[in-house]
Write a protein that binds this DNA or RNA. Sequence first.
DNA 1: AAATATTTTTAGATAACTCTAAAATATTTT
DNA 2: AAAATATTTTAGAGTTATCTAAAAATATTT
Lengths: 218, 218
Amino acid sequence: MLSFAEENYLKAIFHLSDSGATEVSTNAISDHMSTKPASVSDMIRKLDEKGMVTYKKYYGVNISKKGKMMALQVIRKHRLWEVFLVDKLKFNWDEVHEVAEQLEHIRSGLLIQRLDEFLDYPKVDPHGDPIPDENGDMAVAKKTPLDKVEVGVKGKIVAVNDEGSSFLQYLDKIGIYLGAKLEVTERVDFDGSMEILIDNKQKVFISREVSQNILITD
Amino acid sequence: MLSFAEENYLKAIFHLSDSGATEVSTNAISDHMSTKPASVSDMIRKLDEKGMVTYKKYYGVNISKKGKMMALQVIRKHRLWEVFLVDKLKFNWDEVHEVAEQLEHIRSGLLIQRLDEFLDYPKVDPHGDPIPDENGDMAVAKKTPLDKVEVGVKGKIVAVNDEGSSFLQYLDKIGIYLGAKLEVTERVDFDGSMEILIDNKQKVFISREVSQNILITD
DNA sequence: AAATATTTTTAGATAACTCTAAAATATTTT
DNA sequence: AAAATATTTTAGAGTTATCTAAAAATATTT
Ligand SMILES: [Mn+2]
Ligand SMILES: [Mn+2]
Ligand SMILES: [Mn+2]
Ligand SMILES: [Mn+2]
C-alpha cells in the first residue's frame, strides 16, 4: 500500500508526464511539489523499487502501467470529492481543492463507489476536469486553451487549468464560469492579451496568463 | 497544529478518562491503542509540553481543558462522518467506524460546518453516541447498560458500546437495532446471561458480554 | 574539445513515530 | 519492611520523509 507521500508523488509524475506520455525530470517534480530535488531522487528510487515508475539515473522517470492506475485512482477520488463539496455542501469552486487534497487519500473502496453513486456518476469536476472511472478510463473532450484562438472565435468555457483560489476568485469577479458562452473580440499580438465577450453581455480584457488557463470547446 | 497520531492519543485519553474525569495510566493507553507503553510515555511527554495533558511521571496523565476541546472536535468529526456514511451513502452501521477513523482527521472548518448543516444537525451517531457541537457541548442522555437491569424491566435500545463489525453484525442477526423496544424476560444470575423480548416479537438469549454493550433508556 | 553551467545524485542530519531491552519506580504480597 | 511483582520510563535503534552541502553526471557555451 502506498503512503500519502507516495500517492502525491505519483500524481505529480502523472500530471507532469502528460498522463504518462513522456518522462519527467527530477527538478520538474521538485518544482511542482515544493520539495528539494534530493528528496525527489530518494522517492523515485523507492517508487521504482515498488514498480510504480521506471527510473534511469540522471534521465528522469516514466510512470508505469501500475503507477498510472494508482495515480488515476487518487485523481478519481480527488475529483469526486470536489464534486461532492460543490454540489452537496455548497462550496464555491475556489474552496474545494485544498480539502480534496486531503480527502483523496481516504482509503475505502466502498466509500468511493457509494460517493460516485450518490453524486449520480459525474463525468467532470467543478473545474471541468474529467473524472476517471474505476478502471481509470475517462472521457477526453477536446479542449482549447483560450490563448491559442483567433479573434472572432466563439466557444463555451469548459474547464480551467489553475485551481488556485486567487485565479478562480478573479474569474468569479469578471463573470467567467464553467458553461459560459464566449467570443474573442480583440487580440493584442504583442503580449497575447485579449478582449472577450461573455454570454453576449459583458466585455472583459484579460492577460495571456489568464487566457492560458481557460479552456474552451468550439 | 496536532498530528494524526497526537489527535488519536488525545481521543484515547479522553475516552479512557471518562471524558476527562480521571487520570489515565500508560498501560491503559497502550492497550487501547495497540502501541507499546514506551511509545505512550514518549507521546504523553510531548502532549504535556503542548499543554494538552498534565503528566506526572509514573502517575499517569490528566487531559487538560485545551486537550479536551481538541479531542471533542475530533470526536465531533468522527460522528458526523458516521452519520453521513449511514444516512447519505447507505452504509450499514457496522461499516462506518474504520472509515470515520480516517475522515475524522480531515482539517477544514468550513467542511465540518457544512457537513453538519447538510446532515441537518444530527444529535447522535449511528451507534447512539452524542455528537458534540462546535463548542464541545453535547446532550448527555441517561443510558443504562443492559447487564445492569432486572427481569421485567422494559426500555428502548438507544446506543451500543462496541462499534466493531462482528458485534454489530451479530446484533443485526438477532434483530437488535437502535430504537427497538425491549423487555428483559429472564436472567441467569450465575453468568449474567439473559433472555430478552425485542419489539414484543422475538425472544433472544444473549450473554453478559453482549448485554454489557447494549444501552437502554427506561 | 575544453570550460562553464546546470541538473541530479549521494552523504549525512533531523524530526516524528514506533519498537525492544534494560533500568527505574511503584505496588502488592508475604 | 523486605521481597516479589507489576508498571513505567529511558536508552538505543529502525522507518519514512524531509533537508543542506558536496560530489558526480549531463548539457551548454565558447
Ligand atoms: Mn483539485
Ligand atoms: Mn478540480
Ligand atoms: Mn466510530
Ligand atoms: Mn459511532
